[in-house]
Each structure stands twice: as structure tokens, then as C-alpha cells.
Nucleic acid binder design. Structure first.
Lengths: 171, 171
DNA sequence: TGAGGCATGTAAGAAGTTACATGATTTG
DNA sequence: CAAATCATGTAACTTCTTACATGCCTCA
């Protein structure tokens, strides 16, 4: 039920429509943590409303429905946050590819590692630009954003460093 | 089709049964890269055999069937390895939880970050022990293993450092 | 008035999970 | 001979992807 909790988590910051949440997934979660399309988000919001985790608080133009998290939703989110499973499950196609690197010879592995490094470097650039836009005297949301950007920066720096190191190992 | 390619990748190292591959997933892939259960692996191997990507090369006791990758399978794996998608999709529940940290107050966030750090530290310990077992003069497989352990070490070190830094930020 | 973005939806199929089910072989 | 492990499978269900489908609103 990670999708459900991702949505609750996003709604914790304030009410939003399915359309807004789809955009939030794209801009905030999809790159590092979770991925979902609108075709999964809209039905899930409807189910969550039936289950009382969210409620429609406004109907706008073009059939727009703005959802807000309910008290039940908050409790559910809090429980999920505070009880992580012992055996976390991860699915990362880029990392899987790296784990299967030994199936390639050095000539093929090198450009793949290079691409991996380039991709990490591009993400670092992007996160640095994002972070630079946060004012020196941030509010709580901006402070939280800074902490999140930091995990992305450190992770991608590790990926970059590793890829460069691995290229050196091939030689 | 990541499962398919994960299986082809594991079979690239040598023939194995569905049972062996299930164990390999548990010990090698599941923690960092991909996750699959035997109930998904066995049917997939059968489909892959129909598609000519793998073949049964031996039938052993208890109905054991040993699969080997075919030339078609090798080509398919190589294509997949060399053509990573532009927008990699990642799903990580632990990271999602960190991305939703701002839904908690500081008293709740602290132990969660602590647990995140502990988990990274435990993984680092485990990887260090694994790496120490690799002889000083490794063969090709062992060298590849060392490169993989290194990515895990660096990633988890980044996670650990970040979590400790984040705890400090809360104060 | 046309293009782009806003806004939501469904249907079919693929992928993945959980639970049930069975039996052989090895080892202490 | 009992327990652990080896070994494979299916059924029902949930989750996720891809493609199709529709129409409104805003701005240049």
C-alpha cells in the first residue's frame, strides 16, 4: 500500500487534486522514491475517499476535485511511517543493471558506467540548482525540502564516485 | 521485463535451477536492486524456455531442472544492458518514508532517522565482512563481486551520513 | 480560434504478492 | 525416523502499465 501512503504523505502538506498529485509524483517522488501514473492515482483516490482516508473539500472547473487528508488518514499515515518493515523491498532498474555489469566485457561496461556517472552528475546539478533557490532563511517546508535535496545529493554523489572508481578498476 | 533480465543475468554466470535462482535473488539482488519470489520465478522460467531464452540442460532429483542461458538469451540480455531507458523508474519504500519525514514532528522523526542509520550501518558491516572474505588475489567473479560490494558500501555510507546529519538538523 | 495545458476516467493486460499445495532427499 | 531443506507448482488477488477516451478552460 505504498501508493496510498505516498498520496497521504503528499496530502499532509495541504489539499490537492489528483492532477496536482500526479505532478507532485513527477517532480518530487518519481526520481528517487516512488513512481505512479495518473491512471493509478485517480482510482486510488476514489478508493481512499470510500475508506475515509481523504475527502473532497472542493469541486472546481473541469471536474476538478480537491482532496484533503482526514483524521483517519493522518492516523493511518502516522502508523505506516512509524512502523517500517524489517525487510524493505527495493526495485531499481538502474541498480539492477549495475549488478549485472559482469555480464559485459570491459569495452561494453565502460560506456554504461560512464552513462551512469553522467546521469548521477546531471541529477546533482539539478538538485544544486533547486537547493540554491531555497532562501537563506527558510520556512519549515523549505527546510524539509533542503533535507530531502541533501539525501539526493549524497546518494548521487556516491553513485557518481562509485562509477568513476569502477571505470578505473576496469583498466 | 526486469525480472526476465535479472534471471538472464544470473544465468549468465552459469546454469542454475529455479530454486538456485530464488536463493540468488535473496542473497544478491533483493537487498539493493530487485526482488522476486519463487512463485514468480518458476512460471517466468517456463515462459522464457518457451521463448527460447533459456533451456533445460539437466533434470535432477526432486524434479530439479537446471536451466542454461541460450544464445538468444545472451543477445536479449546484452541489448537490455546496453539500452537503459532515459527515465529510470525506482521504487524504494524506505526512501519514500524518508521523503515523507516532514509529516512527522521532531520527536517522531528522530527515532525513525536513527533506525534508518542503524539499518545502513548493519548493511555496511555485512558488506565489509563479505568483502573481507574475497581473497587478495581474486578471480574475475570475485573482482566483480568486490565492485558490487563497493556500490553497496558507498550508498549505505551516504544513507548513514545523511541520517546522522538530518538528526543534527532537527536540533 | 487554435494550441496547450488542465482534469478525470476506464479497460485490458502484465507484473507481483500471498497463500495454499505437494512431495523428495539429506542429515543428525 | 524426524526435521530441515530441496524443489516445484497453482490460484486468487492486488498492483501497475499502456493505451484509449473525453472534454473544459485559458491565453495568445
Amino acid at each position: 500500500m505504498s501508493l496510498r501512503h505516498a498520496l497521504l504523505g503528499l496530502l499532509h502538506d495541504g489539499p490537492a487534486s489528483g492532477y496536482d498529485l500526479t505532478k507532485m509524483f513527477e517532480s518530487r517522488l518519481e526520481r528517487f522514491a516512488w513512481h505512479a501514473r495518473h491512471s493509478q492515482i485517480y482510482p486510488e483516490l476514489n478508493k481512499m475517499a470510500v475508506d475515509g482516508l481523504v475527502e473532497v473539500i472542493e469541486e472546481g472547473p473541469r471536474g476538478r476535485r480537491t482532496y484533503a487528508i482526514t483524521e483517519v488518514g493522518r492516523t493511518d499515515l502516522h502508523d505506516w511511517m512509524m512502523n517500517p518493515p524489517a525487510d524493505p523491498q527495493v526495485r531499481s532498474e538502474p541498480l539492477l543493471r549495475m549488478f549485472l555489469l559482469s555480464t559485459l566485457d570491459a569495452e561494453d561496461a565502460r560506456p554504461l558506467l560512464r552513462a551512469h556517472a553522467d546521469s548521477a552528475a546531471a541529477t546533482i546539478d539539478w538538485l544544486r540548482r533547486e537547493t540554491a533557490e531555497i532562501p537563506a532563511d527558510p520556512d519549515e517546508t523549505q527546510l524539509a525540502q533542503r533535507i530531502l535535496n541533501e539525501i539526493g545529493l549524497r546518494q548521487n554523489q556516491a553513485e557518481y564516485d562509485w562509477a568513476m572508481w569502477a571505470i578505473a578498476q576496469l583498466n
